[in-house]
Amino acid sequence: MADNTLEIRNLNTSFFTQHGEVRAVNDVSLDVRRAQITGIVGESGCGKSMTARSVMGLVRYPGRIVSGRIRLDGKEITGLSKKEMCSLRGNELSMIFQEPMSSLNPVMKVGKQVEETLRIHQHVTKEEAARRTEEIFREVGISDARSRMACYPHQLSGGLRQRVMIAMAMICKPKLLIADEPTTALDVTVEAQILSLMKRLCEGGTSILLISHNLGVIAQVCDYVYVMYAGRIVEQADTCTLFDHPVHPYTRALLGAASSLRSGAARLETIPGGVPNLLHLPSGCSFSPRCEKCARQCQNEVPQMLPVSGEGHLARCYFANVPEE
Protein backbone atom coordinates (compact mmCIF):
# COMPACT_ATOMS: atom_id res chain seq x y z
CA MET A 1 0.00 0.00 0.00
CA ALA A 2 1.34 3.37 -1.00
CA ASP A 3 1.70 6.09 1.63
CA ASN A 4 -0.32 8.43 -0.47
CA THR A 5 -3.77 7.50 -1.67
CA LEU A 6 -3.57 10.16 -4.34
CA GLU A 7 -0.55 11.66 -6.05
CA ILE A 8 -0.91 14.39 -8.62
CA ARG A 9 2.20 15.48 -10.48
CA ASN A 10 2.47 18.53 -12.74
CA LEU A 11 -1.17 18.48 -13.72
CA ASN A 12 -2.26 20.94 -16.39
CA THR A 13 -5.91 21.23 -17.33
CA SER A 14 -7.05 23.85 -19.79
CA PHE A 15 -10.19 25.03 -21.51
CA PHE A 16 -9.74 25.65 -25.18
CA THR A 17 -12.14 28.49 -25.88
CA GLN A 18 -12.66 30.83 -28.82
CA HIS A 19 -10.55 33.40 -27.05
CA GLY A 20 -7.67 31.06 -26.35
CA GLU A 21 -6.45 28.61 -23.77
CA VAL A 22 -7.79 29.11 -20.24
CA ARG A 23 -5.30 27.50 -17.89
CA ALA A 24 -7.61 26.39 -15.12
CA VAL A 25 -5.11 24.02 -13.49
CA ASN A 26 -1.50 25.04 -13.87
CA ASP A 27 1.29 22.65 -12.97
CA VAL A 28 -0.41 21.35 -9.86
CA SER A 29 1.25 18.67 -7.75
CA LEU A 30 -0.36 17.42 -4.59
CA ASP A 31 -0.65 14.38 -2.36
CA VAL A 32 -3.52 13.05 -0.32
CA ARG A 33 -2.14 10.96 2.48
CA ARG A 34 -3.76 7.77 3.60
CA ALA A 35 -6.57 8.22 6.11
CA GLN A 36 -6.07 11.95 6.31
CA ILE A 37 -8.09 14.93 5.24
CA THR A 38 -6.19 17.08 2.80
CA GLY A 39 -7.59 20.46 1.92
CA ILE A 40 -7.45 22.76 -1.06
CA VAL A 41 -8.38 26.35 -0.33
CA GLY A 42 -8.61 29.36 -2.60
CA GLU A 43 -10.94 31.97 -4.01
CA SER A 44 -13.64 30.83 -6.35
CA GLY A 45 -12.44 30.43 -9.90
CA CYS A 46 -8.91 29.46 -8.87
CA GLY A 47 -9.19 25.94 -10.26
CA LYS A 48 -10.15 23.82 -7.24
CA SER A 49 -13.07 22.09 -8.89
CA MET A 50 -11.15 21.52 -12.10
CA THR A 51 -8.36 19.85 -10.15
CA ALA A 52 -10.95 17.53 -8.61
CA ARG A 53 -12.67 16.88 -11.92
CA SER A 54 -9.35 16.10 -13.55
CA VAL A 55 -8.79 13.38 -10.98
CA MET A 56 -12.28 11.99 -11.62
CA GLY A 57 -11.90 12.21 -15.38
CA LEU A 58 -14.95 14.47 -15.44
CA VAL A 59 -13.58 17.61 -17.10
CA ARG A 60 -16.17 18.86 -19.54
CA TYR A 61 -15.64 19.94 -23.09
CA PRO A 62 -13.95 22.26 -24.13
CA GLY A 63 -11.65 21.46 -21.23
CA ARG A 64 -9.15 18.64 -21.07
CA ILE A 65 -6.10 17.44 -19.21
CA VAL A 66 -3.10 18.65 -21.16
CA SER A 67 -0.37 16.94 -19.21
CA GLY A 68 0.49 15.50 -15.84
CA ARG A 69 0.23 12.26 -13.94
CA ILE A 70 -2.34 11.10 -11.46
CA ARG A 71 -1.83 8.06 -9.32
CA LEU A 72 -4.46 6.43 -7.16
CA ASP A 73 -3.07 4.18 -4.48
CA GLY A 74 0.16 3.79 -6.41
CA LYS A 75 -1.61 2.98 -9.67
CA GLU A 76 -1.36 5.31 -12.64
CA ILE A 77 -4.85 6.40 -13.72
CA THR A 78 -3.99 8.94 -16.39
CA GLY A 79 -4.37 7.29 -19.76
CA LEU A 80 -6.89 4.72 -18.58
CA SER A 81 -9.66 3.93 -21.05
CA LYS A 82 -13.16 5.32 -20.52
CA LYS A 83 -14.35 1.91 -19.43
CA GLU A 84 -11.56 1.50 -16.91
CA MET A 85 -12.29 4.97 -15.49
CA CYS A 86 -15.96 4.04 -15.12
CA SER A 87 -15.03 1.02 -13.07
CA LEU A 88 -12.97 3.25 -10.76
CA ARG A 89 -15.52 6.05 -10.35
CA GLY A 90 -17.94 5.44 -7.53
CA ASN A 91 -15.95 2.38 -6.58
CA GLU A 92 -12.39 3.34 -5.61
CA LEU A 93 -12.74 7.03 -6.32
CA SER A 94 -15.80 9.05 -5.32
CA MET A 95 -16.83 12.64 -5.42
CA ILE A 96 -19.54 14.74 -3.86
CA PHE A 97 -20.57 18.12 -5.15
CA GLN A 98 -21.41 21.52 -3.79
CA GLU A 99 -25.12 21.74 -4.52
CA PRO A 100 -26.91 18.82 -2.89
CA MET A 101 -30.28 19.70 -4.42
CA SER A 102 -29.30 19.77 -8.05
CA SER A 103 -26.81 16.94 -7.66
CA LEU A 104 -29.53 14.36 -7.09
CA ASN A 105 -31.79 13.14 -9.86
CA PRO A 106 -35.17 14.77 -9.13
CA VAL A 107 -37.32 11.95 -10.50
CA MET A 108 -35.61 9.05 -8.77
CA LYS A 109 -36.02 7.94 -5.16
CA VAL A 110 -32.88 8.64 -3.14
CA GLY A 111 -32.62 5.03 -1.99
CA LYS A 112 -32.56 3.89 -5.61
CA GLN A 113 -29.87 6.44 -6.42
CA VAL A 114 -27.63 5.12 -3.67
CA GLU A 115 -28.31 1.47 -4.56
CA GLU A 116 -27.41 2.33 -8.14
CA THR A 117 -23.76 2.97 -7.24
CA LEU A 118 -23.53 -0.41 -5.59
CA ARG A 119 -25.23 -2.24 -8.42
CA ILE A 120 -22.99 -0.67 -11.05
CA HIS A 121 -19.89 -2.06 -9.39
CA GLN A 122 -20.96 -5.18 -7.57
CA HIS A 123 -23.22 -8.04 -8.48
CA VAL A 124 -25.70 -7.90 -5.65
CA THR A 125 -29.37 -8.79 -5.48
CA LYS A 126 -32.01 -6.10 -5.11
CA GLU A 127 -32.60 -7.09 -1.50
CA GLU A 128 -28.89 -7.02 -0.70
CA ALA A 129 -28.53 -3.59 -2.32
CA ALA A 130 -31.46 -2.25 -0.28
CA ARG A 131 -30.06 -3.73 2.90
CA ARG A 132 -26.62 -2.22 2.29
CA THR A 133 -28.18 1.13 1.45
CA GLU A 134 -30.11 1.12 4.69
CA GLU A 135 -26.90 0.32 6.50
CA ILE A 136 -24.91 3.13 4.87
CA PHE A 137 -27.79 5.56 5.53
CA ARG A 138 -27.43 4.77 9.23
CA GLU A 139 -23.67 5.17 9.02
CA VAL A 140 -23.92 8.65 7.56
CA GLY A 141 -26.43 9.62 10.21
CA ILE A 142 -29.74 9.47 8.38
CA SER A 143 -32.32 8.47 10.93
CA ASP A 144 -35.42 6.58 9.88
CA ALA A 145 -33.36 5.17 7.02
CA ARG A 146 -35.95 2.83 5.54
CA SER A 147 -38.61 5.47 4.99
CA ARG A 148 -36.07 8.08 3.86
CA MET A 149 -34.94 5.73 1.11
CA ALA A 150 -38.38 6.04 -0.46
CA CYS A 151 -38.20 9.83 -0.57
CA TYR A 152 -37.52 11.97 -3.60
CA PRO A 153 -34.73 14.56 -3.26
CA HIS A 154 -37.11 17.51 -2.93
CA GLN A 155 -38.66 15.92 0.13
CA LEU A 156 -35.38 16.11 2.07
CA SER A 157 -33.56 19.02 3.70
CA GLY A 158 -30.23 20.25 2.34
CA GLY A 159 -28.28 18.53 5.08
CA LEU A 160 -30.05 15.22 4.49
CA ARG A 161 -29.48 15.47 0.76
CA GLN A 162 -25.79 15.99 1.32
CA ARG A 163 -25.77 12.94 3.61
CA VAL A 164 -27.43 11.00 0.81
CA MET A 165 -24.67 12.18 -1.53
CA ILE A 166 -22.07 11.03 0.98
CA ALA A 167 -23.83 7.67 1.35
CA MET A 168 -23.81 7.32 -2.42
CA ALA A 169 -20.12 8.11 -2.58
CA MET A 170 -19.21 5.84 0.34
CA ILE A 171 -21.30 2.73 -0.31
CA CYS A 172 -18.54 0.95 -2.26
CA LYS A 173 -15.95 1.95 0.35
CA PRO A 174 -13.74 4.02 -1.97
CA LYS A 175 -10.07 4.63 -1.31
CA LEU A 176 -10.47 8.33 -1.98
CA LEU A 177 -13.39 10.66 -1.39
CA ILE A 178 -13.26 14.06 -3.04
CA ALA A 179 -15.61 16.56 -1.44
CA ASP A 180 -15.96 19.73 -3.50
CA GLU A 181 -17.32 22.45 -1.23
CA PRO A 182 -19.63 19.94 0.48
CA THR A 183 -20.97 22.45 3.00
CA THR A 184 -21.06 25.69 1.04
CA ALA A 185 -24.79 25.42 0.39
CA LEU A 186 -25.62 24.48 3.98
CA ASP A 187 -26.18 26.54 7.10
CA VAL A 188 -23.59 26.59 9.85
CA THR A 189 -25.03 23.98 12.22
CA VAL A 190 -25.57 21.51 9.43
CA GLU A 191 -22.09 22.33 8.15
CA ALA A 192 -20.61 21.32 11.50
CA GLN A 193 -22.50 18.01 11.40
CA ILE A 194 -21.34 17.18 7.90
CA LEU A 195 -17.76 18.08 8.77
CA SER A 196 -17.77 15.83 11.80
CA LEU A 197 -19.17 13.06 9.61
CA MET A 198 -16.24 13.56 7.24
CA LYS A 199 -13.87 13.31 10.16
CA ARG A 200 -15.51 10.07 11.21
CA LEU A 201 -15.19 8.63 7.70
CA CYS A 202 -11.53 9.59 7.70
CA GLU A 203 -10.96 7.87 11.04
CA GLY A 204 -12.56 4.83 9.45
CA GLY A 205 -9.72 4.76 6.92
CA THR A 206 -10.99 6.84 4.00
CA SER A 207 -8.62 9.38 2.54
CA ILE A 208 -10.38 12.64 1.80
CA LEU A 209 -9.61 15.57 -0.45
CA LEU A 210 -11.69 18.46 0.87
CA ILE A 211 -12.13 21.53 -1.26
CA SER A 212 -13.35 24.79 0.19
CA HIS A 213 -13.06 28.50 -0.20
CA ASN A 214 -13.72 28.78 3.52
CA LEU A 215 -10.64 28.85 5.74
CA GLY A 216 -12.75 28.07 8.80
CA VAL A 217 -13.87 24.78 7.29
CA ILE A 218 -10.31 23.91 6.34
CA ALA A 219 -9.02 24.75 9.81
CA GLN A 220 -11.64 22.57 11.48
CA VAL A 221 -10.97 19.31 9.71
CA CYS A 222 -7.89 19.24 7.51
CA ASP A 223 -4.56 17.66 8.39
CA TYR A 224 -2.69 19.25 5.53
CA VAL A 225 -3.57 22.17 3.29
CA TYR A 226 -2.79 23.40 -0.21
CA VAL A 227 -3.47 27.03 -1.04
CA MET A 228 -4.38 27.63 -4.64
CA TYR A 229 -4.26 30.86 -6.60
CA ALA A 230 -5.02 31.38 -10.30
CA GLY A 231 -4.60 27.71 -11.12
CA ARG A 232 -1.38 27.19 -9.18
CA ILE A 233 -0.55 25.86 -5.76
CA VAL A 234 1.13 28.78 -3.97
CA GLU A 235 1.66 27.35 -0.51
CA GLN A 236 1.34 24.03 1.25
CA ALA A 237 1.82 23.02 4.86
CA ASP A 238 0.18 21.09 7.63
CA THR A 239 -2.81 22.95 8.96
CA CYS A 240 -1.25 24.31 12.16
CA THR A 241 1.83 25.60 10.39
CA LEU A 242 -0.17 27.22 7.66
CA PHE A 243 -2.42 29.08 10.05
CA ASP A 244 0.38 30.01 12.47
CA HIS A 245 3.16 30.83 10.03
CA PRO A 246 1.77 31.63 6.61
CA VAL A 247 4.54 32.68 4.28
CA HIS A 248 3.05 33.48 0.91
CA PRO A 249 1.65 37.01 0.70
CA TYR A 250 -1.56 35.60 -0.76
CA THR A 251 -2.07 33.19 2.13
CA ARG A 252 -1.42 36.01 4.56
CA ALA A 253 -3.86 38.28 2.82
CA LEU A 254 -6.46 35.52 2.83
CA LEU A 255 -5.98 34.88 6.55
CA GLY A 256 -6.06 38.60 7.21
CA ALA A 257 -9.34 38.98 5.39
CA ALA A 258 -10.79 36.02 7.26
CA SER A 259 -9.71 37.24 10.71
CA SER A 260 -10.96 40.77 10.11
CA LEU A 261 -14.28 39.20 9.17
CA ARG A 262 -14.34 37.05 12.29
CA SER A 263 -13.32 39.80 14.73
CA GLY A 264 -15.86 42.19 13.25
CA ALA A 265 -13.23 44.82 12.54
CA ALA A 266 -14.49 48.25 11.64
CA ARG A 267 -13.02 47.96 8.18
CA LEU A 268 -13.05 44.64 6.40
CA GLU A 269 -9.60 43.83 5.21
CA THR A 270 -9.68 42.92 1.56
CA ILE A 271 -7.07 41.97 -0.98
CA PRO A 272 -6.52 44.87 -3.34
CA GLY A 273 -6.87 44.21 -7.05
CA GLY A 274 -8.59 41.31 -8.74
CA VAL A 275 -7.91 37.71 -9.63
CA PRO A 276 -5.90 37.57 -12.86
CA ASN A 277 -7.52 36.45 -16.05
CA LEU A 278 -6.61 32.82 -16.60
CA LEU A 279 -6.49 33.53 -20.34
CA HIS A 280 -3.65 36.02 -19.97
CA LEU A 281 -1.65 35.16 -16.89
CA PRO A 282 1.08 37.59 -15.83
CA SER A 283 4.46 36.32 -16.98
CA GLY A 284 5.86 36.08 -13.47
CA CYS A 285 4.19 35.24 -10.18
CA SER A 286 0.41 35.35 -10.71
CA PHE A 287 -0.03 37.24 -7.45
CA SER A 288 2.57 39.88 -8.29
CA PRO A 289 0.11 42.53 -9.57
CA ARG A 290 -1.60 42.50 -6.15
CA CYS A 291 1.45 41.95 -4.01
CA GLU A 292 2.98 44.72 -1.94
CA LYS A 293 6.35 42.97 -1.84
CA CYS A 294 6.51 42.59 -5.59
CA ALA A 295 10.04 42.91 -7.00
CA ARG A 296 11.32 42.89 -10.57
CA GLN A 297 12.17 39.19 -10.33
CA CYS A 298 8.56 38.45 -9.38
CA GLN A 299 7.30 39.95 -12.61
CA ASN A 300 9.71 38.11 -14.86
CA GLU A 301 9.67 34.52 -13.80
CA VAL A 302 7.25 32.24 -11.99
CA PRO A 303 8.87 31.23 -8.70
CA GLN A 304 9.28 27.55 -7.85
CA MET A 305 7.84 25.95 -4.73
CA LEU A 306 10.57 26.70 -2.19
CA PRO A 307 10.98 24.86 1.09
CA VAL A 308 10.31 26.94 4.18
CA SER A 309 11.66 26.10 7.62
CA GLY A 310 9.33 23.54 9.12
CA GLU A 311 8.73 20.13 7.62
CA GLY A 312 6.52 19.80 4.58
CA HIS A 313 6.07 23.54 4.27
CA LEU A 314 6.55 24.96 0.79
CA ALA A 315 5.71 28.30 -0.76
CA ARG A 316 5.84 29.69 -4.27
CA CYS A 317 7.49 32.99 -3.35
CA TYR A 318 10.99 34.42 -3.76
CA PHE A 319 10.72 35.89 -0.29
CA ALA A 320 9.62 32.68 1.39
CA ASN A 321 12.73 32.54 3.53
CA VAL A 322 13.31 36.22 4.06
CA PRO A 323 12.58 36.97 7.71
CA GLU A 324 9.97 39.58 8.54
CA GLU A 325 11.44 42.97 9.29
Binding site: M56, L58, C86, S87, L88, R89, G90, N91, S94, M95, F97, E99, S102, S103, L104, N105, P106, E116, T117, I120, H121, M165, M168, A169
Partner: peptide
Amino acid sequence: DYIDTARAKG
Protein backbone atom coordinates in the same frame (compact mmCIF):
# COMPACT_ATOMS: atom_id res chain seq x y z
CA ASP B 1 -25.37 18.60 -11.86
CA TYR B 2 -27.03 15.23 -11.39
CA ILE B 3 -25.58 14.09 -14.68
CA ASP B 4 -22.14 14.69 -13.18
CA THR B 5 -23.24 12.71 -10.15
CA ALA B 6 -24.31 9.82 -12.37
CA ARG B 7 -20.96 9.85 -14.11
CA ALA B 8 -19.15 10.10 -10.78
CA LYS B 9 -20.95 6.90 -9.79
CA GLY B 10 -19.35 5.07 -12.66
